[in-house]
């Protein structure tokens, strides 16, 4: 029993790290992704091509590789070492671990690239006819985007976004490779004591969280099902 409580509390602490990583990635990658999607639709050809190359690299190489480059890269070129960095930033009683910061940066950039493609697809799939209908009715560009296009885009991107976001939940475990004390890392601790079942427990943590997200996304989809776009 004592062992069980110990395992669960350690896993919970690991999961809270995973959860924060997930949340911060999400709230930074969405606006960043929107920005990238606008750049990838830019009328200025150099901006468009540059953005597309960046997105291609970010989507075309493993997230783990990107994480390594961001974490070890600055040290390799003699710029600075993440591990010796003291951020001085605190979160309640904890100091922000530089490994954690490096992970957030890697995750946010990588996911922004994925999100940007979803946004671009969503925006471009709204027919020109909708924009033109707004134009002939004297609406401004801003009004056309916010009053006509936006909700239709949201409706279209909910399914692919929910896929991507669920993948992100599980991808947070990659942060383990640079030493972030996330859920899997914490479960692995017990291997030294010859206990394997914490891994199954960790799996359960992911499952429950993904289940909750699925319910939320289904609710959103249902809420938007009153119209066809």
């Amino acid at each position: 029993m004592e062992e069980f409580v110990k395992v669960i509390s350690q896993l919970a602490s690991g999961f809270s790290v995973s959860l924060i990583l997930f949340t911060i990635t999400l709230i930074t990658a969405i606006p960043l992704g929107l920005l990238i999607s606008f750049c990838s639709m830019s009328k200025v050809t150099p901006i468009r091509i540059f953005t597309k190359v960046i997105v291609w690299i970010l989507r075309g190489t493993p997230l783990m590789l990107q994480l390594f480059i961001i974490y070890y890269g600055p040290g390799l070129v003699g710029w600075f070492n993440w591990s010796s960095l003291n951020t001085g930033w605190t979160w309640f009683d904890k100091t922000f671990d530089p490994r954690f910061i490096a992970s957030i940066i890697a995750f946010a950039i990588n996911y922004a690239a994925y999100f940007s493609e979803i946004f671009r697809g969503g925006i471009q799939s709204i027919t020109k006819g909708q924009t033109e209908a707004g134009q002939v009715l004297g609406m401004t560009k801003g009004q056309i985007f916010s009053k006509i296009v936006l909700l239709q885009v949201i409706k279209r991107i909910v399914p692919p976004m929910s896929n991507e976001i669920i993948t992100l939940v599980k991808d947070t475990s990659l942060a383990k490779t640079v030493g972030v004390l996330e859920l899997i890392f914490r479960a692995q601790d017990f291997l030294d004591d010859g206990i394997i079942w914490p891994f199954l427990c960790a799996g359960l943590f992911y499952l429950i969280f993904v289940g909750l997200l699925t319910i939320i996304f289904n609710k959103i989809e249902k809420k938007l099902s009153y119209f066809k776009a």
Partner: peptide, 13 residues
């Protein structure tokens, strides 16, 4: 001017 399109283009939402 007003313009009525072949494909209606009503706002679905």
């Amino acid at each position: 001017f007003g313009l009525v399109f072949q494909s209606f283009n009503l706002f679905p939402q």
